[in-house]
């Protein structure tokens, strides 16, 4: 039997006092790629933020188990150090801190070990080549003046450098052109092995064409309403979410 990496159990989460997640259950095993899809406002980003315990969201009920440990109430940095990574939909800009220095510092914090400069540089150059990133960007302030695509690639670069056990990619594909999406997929493939896992959050299906996805979950109004293989994504591509929305709408009207 495959080894459980992440288990979300009956999770209820509020944002600004509004109930967003209404009893989420999700299990991700090592070696798997999962996708959460859903219309805008369904709670996709909230799910990602809740896993990393963003203080802007409050958990009302339920628990999150990661690598056999309860991380429900740990602080964000503790969760990150246990091996959870999130690629942000809108990465923050940090003026005055170069990409290289940022990565070194973060790597040091995540591993609690000194970073070996020479090795680090070799890895970095390798990843950047694969991600078709401009080496000049390494000396620039983190994300400052980066295009949308550059920011997203930079998130993937961070994922590769920090090498987490679970990578959550929140809308990493949104706003990217076909070539950039391919590059991001390539980054995910480089990262992926049978000891880690990826959770992709998206509202379109382009990125799924070039990745071998194990499960697709449909999130509507704070609940997972369907789970299936990647075939499900194709159905969504053709039919949208109307089928699920109706179910929800009807129940609300009743």
């Amino acid at each position: 039997m495959s080894e459980k990496l992440l288990q979300i159990k009956n999770l209820y989460v509020n944002a600004d006092k509004k109930e967003i997640l209404k009893g989420i259950n999700l299990t991700i095993n090592k070696g798997e790629i999962h996708v959460i899809m859903g219309p805008n406002g369904s709670g996709k980003t909230t799910t990602a933020n809740a896993i990393l315990n963003n203080p802007a969201y409050s958990k009302k009920k339920g628990s999150i188990i990661f690598d056999s440990q309860d991380i429900t109430n740990l602080s964000t940095d503790e969760i990150a150090r246990k091996g959870v990574f999130m690629s942000f939909q809108m990465p923050e800009e940090i003026p005055g801190i170069s990409v290289t220095n940022f990565l070194k510092y973060a790597k040091n914090k995540i591993t609690s070990k000194p970073v070996k400069a020479a090795e680090f540089k070799i890895d970095l150059m390798k990843y950047m080549r694969e991600l078709k990133m401009n080496p000049k960007n390494m000396a620039r302030s983190l994300n400052v003046g980066f295009s949308g695509g550059e920011k997203k690639k930079n998130e993937i670069l961070q994922m590769l450098v920090l090498n987490p056990k679970l990578a959550i990619l929140d809308e990493t594909d949104s706003g990217l052109d076909v070539d950039a999406i391919k590059t991001v997929s390539k980054g995910i493939e480089m990262f992926k092995n049978d000891q880690n896992a990826v959770l992709i959050i998206t509202h379109n299906t382009k990125i799924l064409h070039s990745l071998k996805v194990d499960y697709v979950h449909i999130l509507v109004d704070g609940k997972i309403v369907d789970t299936s293989t990647s075939e499900l994504a194709k159905t969504i591509e053709e039919e949208g979410y109307s089928k699920y929305k109706k179910e929800v709408d009807t129940s609300e009207e009743d």
Partner: peptide
């Protein structure tokens, strides 16, 4: 939150922002 998600404590995060 962004910096903490990269393993930095709140103090590390603030210091990095100020340093930058």
């Amino acid at each position: 939150f962004y910096l903490m998600s990269r393993g930095m404590t709140e103090e590390d995060a603030k210091a990095m922002i100020v340093r930058g």
